[in-house]
Write a protein that binds this DNA or RNA. Structure first.
Lengths: 149, 149
DNA sequence: GTCGGTGCAAATGCTTTGCATTGAT
DNA sequence: ATCAATGCAAAGCATTTGCACCGAC
């Protein structure tokens, strides 16, 4: 069992909450997805694995996982939230194609340095950052040139 | 008349759309706000200035202003979209307090350099970026220590 | 037997859309 | 006259919540 489950279990215990089968299923599905996901995708993955969990429980569990510091919201657009694993991961930043929506993850140490410096300058305590680059991928550009934009 | 109006007018004309009084009112209210705003705040500002515009028109105009490259969406949370002027402005990045929601704008040239470099490495065409630092402000920390968190 | 957890369905709240009307060229 | 813009109210849709039921300690 991945250490993440232990982290989650410990977090829940600290609040007198329970590590239920539904919560385990959801966390395992997230680990399986291993990238940015939406609630709908998560629900599909849970069901693909043969479990049945209601959407309400998925939302409730996502909130717990965020509070536990295991996943984080990554907002690409206003329509719906995207999430990703963060616990024990190097922070992942995103290069997003404005035309096709394709999204490439990368990490850059300099971003952490900048965050640290800005926080220091303001006397705030750093928690994390979110960095997204908006750009056009070669396919996206091609689509636009093909007259579709 | 601020040059922004001219930019918007030119954009609209290029699409055979009209620079209506409502659209002018909305743009002027945005210029007045001069920072990150939500739709509700924008609507209030428009009305404070003595104009009456429907929420539907505000949403429709916001979309046009985004396409015109005058404003951009800045997503802090999943509940609702925030927007801000970008045309002719140095890109503004955000330091957000996770407890109080207070948000401080700053700019850092290095971010633009990083964006440029990452795009080059991937062969994509840079459009813009969004950088948000999540942190605890001194007030936020105090609130948490006061037992409210 | 007390609490928290779950599923369902209803509610919420931001955003979008259909439609009839209005306005500009 | 035509074509786009507006306001209103209704629809959409992701997310949240109320409630009845279930299960663990």
């Amino acid at each position: 069992m991945a250490p993440l489950c232990a982290v989650f279990r410990r977090y829940l215990k600290s609040l007198n909450l329970k590590y239920t089968p539904e919560r385990a299923d959801i966390l395992n599905a997230i680990i399986e997805l291993d990238s940015v996901f939406e609630v709908e995708q998560l629900l599909e993955e849970v069901r693909r694995r043969g479990y049945r969990v209601s959407k309400a429980t998925v939302y409730r569990t996502i909130k717990l996982l965020q509070d536990a510091g295991i996943i984080t919201q990554t907002l690409f657009d206003a329509r719906q939230a995207h999430y990703q694993l963060i616990y024990g991961q190097a922070p992942r930043d995103h290069l997003v194609c404005m035309k096709t929506g394709r999204n490439v993850e990368f990490t850059d140490e300099a971003l952490r340095d900048i965050s640290r410096r800005i926080c220091q300058e303001h006397g705030w305590e750093l928690v994390g950052h979110r960095f997204q680059i908006y750009a056009l991928s070669p396919e996206g550009r091609r689509q636009i040139e093909a007259g579709d934009g």
